[in-house]
């Protein structure tokens, strides 16, 4: 069903009829600038189809945003300036790479924290006192053991 969500996004939120992303007439002549524009477009969210970058999106508004991104790059804006231009109008929502700030700190460092917590938990586990034999997992009964051996003999052959 997950494709469905996408499917319906394209069908409803962008129901203007498809126009393929980055039309040829939008492209910048200078390949280095165009490469920058492309990379930047992939970091900017299409605000109409809520889960795609403007580079992936068919929505006309996304196409207009691509044009504006390219215009500003052609006019000499740096990547940060282009992003700031859009953020000051659409908020941080428009950035697919969320900014690092106090309330996104956990988002960015969470993965490392998870690893550290996992390692710490494992270390604590390894240092636990040895388990008295009486509490250990019950041994197989003689009958079970016999069956196990028999089956393993058959399984291995």
């Amino acid at each position: 069903m997950k494709r469905r969500a996408f499917a319906i996004c394209v069908a409803s939120a962008c129901a203007f009829g498809p126009a393929l992303a980055v039309n040829p007439d939008e492209k910048l002549a200078d390949p280095t600038l165009e490469a920058r524009a492309l990379a930047l477009s992939r970091e900017i969210r299409c605000v109409v189809c809520q889960n795609q970058s403007i580079d992936d999106s068919n929505a006309p508004l996304a196409a207009d945003m691509r044009v504006i991104v390219r215009e500003r790059i052609a006019a000499g804006d740096g990547d940060a300036e282009v992003k700031n231009f859009l953020v000051s109008r659409y908020g941080n929502f428009v950035l697919l790479r969320p900014p690092m700030r106090a309330d996104t700190w956990f988002l960015w460092f969470g993965p490392a924290l998870f690893l550290i917590a996992g390692a710490a938990g494992f270390a604590a586990y390894l240092r636990r006192p040895a388990i008295p034999a009486s509490q250990a997992v019950p041994e197989l009964s003689a009958d079970e053991r016999r069956r196990l051996e028999e089956l393993e003999r058959r399984g291995g052959a």
Binding site: R97, P98, L107
Partner: peptide, 15 residues
């Protein structure tokens, strides 16, 4: 972020 603050953010493929 939406629940604790009044901002909205996106987390996309670059993250």
């Amino acid at each position: 972020i939406d629940v604790i603050g009044d901002d909205k953010i996106s987390v996309g493929p670059p993250y």
